[in-house]
Structure formats: structure tokens, C-alpha cells
């Protein structure tokens, strides 16, 4: 083991490490790869080449069909509206609340944190029935607005903690310097702190968008018609229909995957960083 010469032991260890990494990458990506593969397999080859790693012919016929002859464009649009609005509203609310938790010590802070932690602990399934009962007389069932309200509330606590950990990473000195330089407290927040929290804001946006994009239970419960259905509900109702068309479903799945994965790849570095800051803090 002396020096850095490649002894036999080191080579074996290095090889094992790379192989293990490769196995993980393969395990993580294979299902997604398969989704893509089936979605571009033409119908006539779907069964005859069912377990080939790549079809002998590819086509976009399923995508074409899903976009032109199904209701998926509506689902897609609904999901985009719901997830996008939820992400924007949650990030705005969580920035304000996270800033308060990070920068002020005030009476009741402990209870606010306790309340937010509590919301992370109890089973959300418990809320399915009461929320349905509450929203129904307000006309907010079967409506995208109702979904946005519910998703916003569900995501605010975690987003607040995430934003708080980003604010905690910005030295208090900067705000004080700005206030001495002539800024008001809100001016310092807007001109100095917010621009520095952009990575945090991006991470929170992405995280909440993905969560709202993926939510299934409440969407199933609160939405009944196709007009207001989100992607998960649409896809699921598609599955339970009689004639299962795998190619079309997977094409729709690929489309459902794209926004979430794009967001994730853009922000994963910041997300890991934010979680790390939170984790280190305990």
C-alpha cells in the first residue's frame, strides 16, 4: 500500500467501486429507459419484440396519438397550472415565513415550528374525508383552485424549513450593512437577501412543483370529471379502461416525466445543498 502505486488490492477496490456505481446507475435508469423504449416502439412490434432492449424500428406514433386524439393535453395543461401556481405561491409564502424563522426571535416561534413539524408527522390520508367535506360546499371540489389551495397548504411547512436553511446560510452582517448603508429592513430583504437566496428559491420552486405534479390521492378524491383532471388521475383512469394500449400510456408517461425531471436536473445541486445545510444543523 506504500505510495500511490497501483497495487493489486487498489485496482480491485477501484474496480469494485466503479462496478457498484455502474450497478446503481443502471438500476436507477433502467425503468425510465424502458418507459422510453416502449413509447417509441411501433404497435406492430410491441408484442413480438416485447423484451428486446431496443426495437428494430422506432416511431412517434404513440406520442402523435396521445397529443392529437386523447385528453392528455388537457391533463397536461391542468397539471401545469396546478403545479406551477402551487410552486409560485408556496415559494412566496415559504420565503416570508422562512425569513421570519431565520432572522427573528419572537414569542410563539417555538409553537409555529412545532405546528409545522406536526403537519409533517400525521398521515395526510386522515385529511381526505374532512377536506372533501369542507371544500364541497364552497364549490372547490372538481376545481383546479381547490387543488392549488390544498397542495399549497401541504407543501408550505417543508418549503418553509428549506427556505429557512437557505436564509440561515446568509450572514446577518449583510443585512446590517445594508441597513447602515441606508436601506429599510424590507429593502435589505429585497435588494440583498432575496438575490442571494435565488438558488434556494429555485430549489424550493422545483421541489414543490415536482411534489404537486406527482400528487395522486387528493387529486383522485377531489376531481371527478376529465375537464379538471390532472396528469396522475388521467393516466390512472387510462390504465383502468378496457383496452390497454401500452404504447400510448408510456408515451403519456414519458411526457409526465419530462417537466419533473427537467426541474430536478436543474435544481438537484441546490436541493442537495439545502438539505445538507438543514441536515448539518440537525
Amino acid at each position: 500500500m506504500a505510495g500511490h502505486s497501483l497495487t493489486k488490492g487498489r485496482v480491485v477496490a477501484l474496480l469494485a467501486h466503479r462496478l457498484a456505481i455502474l450497478a446503481y446507475v443502471a438500476f436507477a435508469l433502467f425503468p425510465l429507459y424502458w418507459l422510453l423504449k416502449v413509447s417509441v416502439t411501433p404497435n406492430k412490434l410491441l408484442y413480438s419484440e416485447g423484451i428486446r432492449m431496443w426495437p428494430s424500428q422506432t416511431s412517434f406514433e404513440h406520442f402523435d396519438f396521445v397529443l392529437k386524439h386523447s385528453e392528455f393535453p388537457t391533463f397536461f395543461k391542468n397539471s401545469l397550472i396546478v403545479a406551477g401556481s402551487t410552486a409560485l405561491i408556496v415559494t412566496a409564502l415559504a420565503s416570508l415565513a422562512g425569513y421570519a424563522l431565520s432572522r427573528f426571535s419572537f414569542r410563539g416561534k417555538y409553537w409555529i415550528v412545532a405546528l409545522m413539524l406536526l403537519t409533517q408527522m400525521f398521515p395526510l390520508v386522515m385529511l381526505v374525508a374532512p377536506i372533501f367535506k369542507m371544500l364541497s360546499p364552497l364549490g372547490l371540489t372538481n376545481s383546479l383552485t381547490g387543488l392549488v389551495i390544498v397542495y399549497t397548504a401541504f407543501n408550505v411547512p417543508f418549503a418553509t424549513f428549506l427556505m429557512q436553511s437557505f436564509f440561515d446560510g446568509i450572514p446577518k452582517d449583510l443585512e446590517e450593512a445594508a441597513m447602515i448603508d441606508g436601506a429599510t429592513q424590507f429593502g435589505a430583504f429585497r435588494q440583498i437577501i432575496l438575490p442571494l437566496t435565488l438558488p434556494g428559491i429555485a430549489a424550493t420552486l422545483g421541489f414543490v412543483f415536482t411534489a404537486a405534479w406527482s400528487e395522486l390521492l387528493f387529486s383522485l378524491m377531489l376531481i371527478s370529471g376529465n375537464a379538471a383532471a390532472t396528469f396522475p388521475v388521467g393516466l390512472l383512469s387510462f390504465v383502468s379502461k378496457f383496452s390497454i394500449d401500452f404504447g400510448q400510456m408510456m408515451a403519456a408517461g414519458v411526457m409526465a416525466l419530462i417537466p419533473a425531471c427537467l426541474f430536478f436536473l436543474l435544481i438537484q445541486r441546490y436541493l442537495v445543498q439545502g438539505l445538507t445545510a438543514g441536515a448539518v444543523k440537525g
Binding site: 446507475v25 425503468p31 425510465l32 424502458w34 418507459l35 423484451i51 406527482s214 396522475p232 393516466l235 436536473l265
Partner: peptide, 30 residues
């Protein structure tokens, strides 16, 4: 590598479920 192995986390849970259901289905899954 980190971005790729963390990717499943971003996959919507319903899609993860469907995806695996398809993989287990002998008609289209290997």
C-alpha cells in the same frame, strides 16, 4: 453520477408505480 442516481426521486410516485407495474407485466416488461 449523483444527478443520475438521485433521478428516481424526481419521478412522480404514480408514474414510478405505473412504470414498475409495466416492468412486471410479461406483455411489455422484461
Amino acid at each position: 453520477v449523483q444527478a443520475l442516481v438521485f433521478l428516481p426521486w424526481a419521478v412522480p410516485s404514480f408514474l414510478a408505480g405505473l412504470n414498475w407495474a409495466w416492468l412486471f407485466n410479461p406483455v411489455v416488461g422484461p
